[in-house]
Nucleic acid binder design. Sequence first.
DNA 1: GAACCGTGGCC
DNA 2: TGGCCAAGGTT
Length: 376
Amino acid sequence: MWIVIPRHMLTPALPVTKPTAEDLLIWYDRHRRDLPWRAKPGETANPYRVWISEIMLQQTTVTAVKPFYLRFLDRFPTVEALAQAQEDSVMQAWAGLGYYSRARNLHACAKAVVDRHGGHFPPTEAELLKLPGIGAYTAAAVAAIAFNEKAAAVDGNVERVMSRVFMIEDPLPKAKPLIRSLTEDIVPADRPGDFAQAVMDLGATICTPKRPACALCPWMIPCQARATGLQEAFPKKLKKETGQLRKGAAFVVLRADDSILLRTRPPKGLLGGMAEPPTSAWEPDYQPSQAVLDAPIDARWQRLPGVVRHVFTHFPLELTVLFAKVPKGTPAPDDMRWTPRMQLHEEALPGAMKKVLVHALGEIPVPKTDKSASEP
DNA sequence: GAACCGTGGCC
DNA sequence: TGGCCAAGGTT
């Protein structure tokens, strides 16, 4: 006769060990990424560079940021240089990176650091949080990385790692307070900045959104999601729907002196403060066949074949491009201007609007970068 | 809390 | 190819 013994009486419950900063930092010291804005081991981090990198890296990949960061630092080497710069030149340096309110806030923040703090970033999370463009995450990250303050920088990487290690069932963003609390309990007093960067490196190279490399993870043992093979099911997220397609027309005017009609968008909202060829309103039921009625100038308009498609965060856009040539001396309508084709590269043109110009004119000329020209 | 706010890469 | 994703902040 068989006596059936439940499995839970045969094997003890799996011991749940806590993830420790020590285990993570041992891994980090061996595998840390070498990034342009990052201090070498033993070096002191430069708050200005850390800050620039943190703003650029918001919702943006390291690969995309690198060239922008290097160019930006070359152009604005110090917070004073950035504070003194023209707004236009800051927007132009940011063109192509996206989320353009970051650039405007960045400029405002540089001015505030110079005016209110004598050109030195305040060294505490609470003071950093008061500056424009610096929210909860960035304040903690700069405080920890640049000033060694024991602050918990909770970003997307931390959320993913913690969701898995603690197998948090609540979806984001509901789980954020719990994740913050769990993270604060782990941040070490001696190396808070390295801890923050270590979780980012872990999230970028091991605990990735898809196919995490758990076998290489310093937190494999304490990870509850890994223990049950469910690591890819975390973090739980509410999925958001894509917006409705909007349509519109863009008007590319080529004047006989080889200049293009442009305007600057309003400072706030979508593509705020960026340059563009004039366009119609963008609406779901826009009729491209009637586009000429929205033209900024009286001319012989030519509707170009095809459309320019672009996907913004919350809606896709389809622009029909109308093209016209006008004589030399044609004046620009109010609030518009003529930019020589060879100077288009100096305009703060977002990606969507570059697509429009390329559709109508072909590639935008980019001058060869000549470093010797900017040196004595 | 939810909406708004870009872009490029990946599978 | 289209949906997902990336070191969020502001309103």
